[in-house]
Write a protein that binds this DNA or RNA. Structure first.
Lengths: 338, 338
DNA sequence: CTGAAAGCGCTTACAG
DNA sequence: CTGAAAGCGCTTACAG
């Protein structure tokens, strides 16, 4: 393409390419009239610096990588929107990559992609944010990383997250306040740190309320609708059943809801069901789900803000950049008095 | 980063950089032993060509743009997974961009992003695949485009899609075969070509079956759950109500389902509800939705295959590259005899 | 405050 | 079949 280059602008403005470069990068030491004149020519010609040339000469790239285990999850979509919007704001672009651990040589392949693209930084989403092979790889290549949704910050990377533990405690307290004593908890995929923290929050809140938790009332599941439905079936089949079920995410809560519907158990009259995430599906159910709002878009935006900060890449210890954002309890119609 | 460059490989292999380049690009005219030797060194050193340098010198980039109106939709997630996987396969990377028409200067901003990144090609998703300002922009810059889900192919771009019209006819025929005569259709957002084609399929199937379609039984909606629920409320409030409702997508069908649940209308006993898309949510409802399966991942993969074909960029008329993939009827439990 | 030279890591012509 | 030269569009030192 006959795109306009820095030389074209320089010629048209009667200055050197270097001066144009200074103007484009908002560097100091350009007299105001010169700057304005150059800016006018830039606008006239529709000049936009070539990102590849910039990256090559400055060895700093304008591409940020967003790495997913499962880019097709509802969670991923929200995160992405926040990240894209923020990248655009900073003049960066978002490259989305998938890390599929089941593929032979996945780590090498990821490393390759990295080197080829010379990414300015990387956002790691759950659960891959907790894979140390990956974080080690980035550390070794000197690529700044921010972990989204992990709780284990460290010298090599900041984390951006909500307090899953406290949120789960709050939700459990809410159920207890409603008069529930027989409360079950459907666990998320144990490879996710968030699943473990939510469970801990539930358990501690129950203990604090002086309530027993039967082992078979904290069934293991894996964050999918199907696993939630199976857990619901097991929990609700017995005559001796809980009066409230707290699922570690909304999809599983929906599964519990369907299980209850099939068994003709009225929600919230005979059973309260609550979730976690405030995913779009939490509103597409009947009754709508009481849940914890997690600001995924804002969390993602925060990871980008950290990554584009030049000081972050240099920092001795990056932990200090970590951000915790507030969550919210969303009380809808799937929970009620015991 | 002290990444290994083509020079390092050349030195270690005792050949010129040009020879290494030839090997990396699988060009002809390299003797087998030399090729193998170079390949060995490449593996040893973990060499990976720098994408920016490649793009700059060859003026062909390895970045493909995936443009969305709403990157947070469930649809977007599926599409993305297919596209990412296929890009990786071809040695390309996927840059996800959002086109927000409500932002002042959106077209210029998009053009800027384009020029900076020097994209090898672009995938346009619905509904932006039908925005001619956008396709004109790409055509003018000489950037190959493939439209996903549009039906209006043209000289400047191929389309990859299913036959929405035929699928909607099939679904309507299914309802008619079940004995339904009083069938309503909840329309999708009219700015989407697919919404119009699905409506046309419904109308033609009804006409072919000799069935009348009341104007107030084809309510306008916009593909959202909320709009589907509103349409359901309007349709089901009257005593004189339809026995089947066909919603132009699954989210709206879910809305109809919730509307029915609140009015205590049993599905599928007293009302059949069917959707379109086979979105993940179609299985998270009770009863599960009868719907049309649209292979989003495969459709997306097909767009990438077209874009990486060098012949496509050169082609006089690109229409010939268009692909139509088969859809499927998924009969689940939300539909039954009238 | 401004600019001329050199170079980032590749590939494109052009030689041989 | 292989290589030396030039250049892609910028920015990084260095001068002045």
């Amino acid at each position: 393409m006959n795109a306009v280059t820095i030389k074209d602008v320089a010629r048209a403005a009667g200055v050197s390419p270097k001066t144009v470069s200074r103007v484009m990068n908002a560097e100091a030491h350009v007299r105001a009239p010169v700057r304005e004149h150059v800016l006018r020519i830039v606008a006239e010609l529709g000049y936009r610096p070539n990102a590849h040339a910039r990256s090559l000469s400055s060895s700093r790239s304008f591409l940020i990588g967003l790495f997913f285990d499962d880019p097709a999850s509802g969670y991923a979509a929200d995160v992405q929107l926040g990240a894209i919007t923020r990248c655009r704001h900073h003049g960066y672009h978002l490259v989305v990559e998938r890390v599929d651990r089941s593929v032979e040589g996945w780590l090498e392949e990821t490393a390759s992609a990295l080197q080829a693209l010379d990414l300015a930084g990387v956002v790691l989403t759950p659960p891959i944010c907790d894979w140390t092979e990956l974080t080690d790889l980035f550390a070794q290549r000197g690529i700044p990383v921010v972990k989204l949704g992990s709780s284990t910050a460290g010298p090599v990377s900041a984390v951006v997250h909500i307090d899953d533990y406290a949120a789960a405690r709050d939700m459990t307290d809410h159920l207890v306040a409603l008069g529930h004593r027989r409360i079950a908890f459907v666990q998320g995929n144990a490879t996710h740190g968030a699943a473990r923290r939510r469970l801990a929050g539930f358990q501690d809140a129950m203990a604090a309320a002086g309530l027993d938790v039967r082992a078979d009332w904290i069934p293991a599941a894996d964050f999918t609708f199907r696993s939630g439905m199976a857990a619901g079936d097991a929990l609700l089949a017995a005559t001796d059943r809980p009066t409230a079920i707290f699922a570690a995410n909304d999809e599983m809560a929906l599964g519990v809801l369907v299980s209850a519907a099939r068994l003709d158990i009225a929600v919230p009259k005979s059973l309260s069901v609550v979730g976690f995430d405030d995913a779009p599906v939490s509103r597409m159910a009947w009754p709508q789900l009481t849940t914890i709002r997690q600001p995924n878009g804002e969390l993602a935006a925060a990871t980008i803000d950290i990554l584009v900060d030049p000081a972050y890449a240099q920092a001795e210890t990056r932990d200090g950049y970590s951000v915790e954002l507030p969550y919210g309890m969303i009380e809808r119609s799937s929970s009620g008095p015991a």
